[in-house]
Amino acid sequence: MKSLADTALPAPAGPPPPLTVTAEPRPSGRQRAAELLQRQGVLAVLVLLCVISSFLFDSFATLDNTRGVTIQASFLSIVALGMTLVIVTGGIDLSVGSVFALGGVVAAWASQYGFLPALLLPLVVCGAIGAINGLLVAKAGMAPFIVTLASLLGARGLLLALTHEGAKTYLVPRGSAFQKLGGGAVWGFGYPVLIALALFGLGGLLLQRTSFGQALFAVGGSGDAALLMGLPVARTKVLVYTLSGLLAGFAGALNAARLSSGVTIIGVGMELDAISAVVIGGTLLVGGAGSVSGTLWGVLLLGVIQNLINQIGSLNSSYQSVVSGGFLIVVVVAQRYLSAARRGT
């Protein structure tokens, strides 16, 4: 025992020579393939679907149709971006649909006072709702599901109160700068599409390349570990729900600008579309893993499915939900299988 203790304790200066080398086995080809498929599977499906559709339908692969699909998808994508960040932390934000509608109504009302109020007021209101969600989740330790369900109801109620039970519709002044924000286009691609793309670029940087993004993964991956490692867990949660509220409100304002009015009946069930898109995009619903690019592909996939059902024409557009639902299940099952393959079992 003595001899061992003597050799172990007085350590040499500088890094000690490697005594044991723990070589971890490299991932096998199959594991790598599974990993790639898990990460880029949605994109592959999306591309495949687009290629097939362009052969089946003459009107699919046209510039007009592409413009239509992208503008349709742009609003949901902005909402789903916020949802991605929330889900990465292991949370959920059910309030986004109501907040989206509320943002639109508030923006339409404020548009009579000019461009900036129309843009900023919905951000303030919806950001505040998000912040309240975050504070209740992070500080009061309440379940995100319940908190955001409550604010789903609350935001919808607020919206109805503002519009006299939906009887009053606020219109965006014709020809105003705010209206152009929603209606304008570059090469036929609406401003909302470009804005959404820019936001996804920023969102990707935020999630992958900043400390805040790392903290989101850590909180979702293991909340206890994140706390013990000294990460600002509560602050991260408050911020992520605030971001989600801001993005939903902003998307609502853009939508109001595009429609030139604050429509009260939109956004119902939008939170579920957003969650579907996020999960289809490969983000784990339990948190800890995900990407914003996946979400973008997920939103586009939902949009393309909708578009195809419209192209077929004979099908009721409600079938879109059936197809999307089926697809969601396929994705979740595939994810389970792929995770198992990645672990090499």
């Binding site: 940087l205 390349r209 400390s211 903290a215 850590a218 293991s222 570990a225 490692m229 800890g288 893993a289």
Partner: peptide, 26 residues
């Protein structure tokens, strides 16, 4: 082990004190 299993080895080691580039990115 109180680390985050899904994150990479390097991210775990530097979580909360990531080195930054000049642009402020990790």
């Amino acid at each position: 082990v109180n680390l985050v299993p899904l994150m990479s080895v390097a991210r775990n080691i530097f979580l909360g004190r990531e080195p930054r580039t000049r642009l402020g990115l990790v």
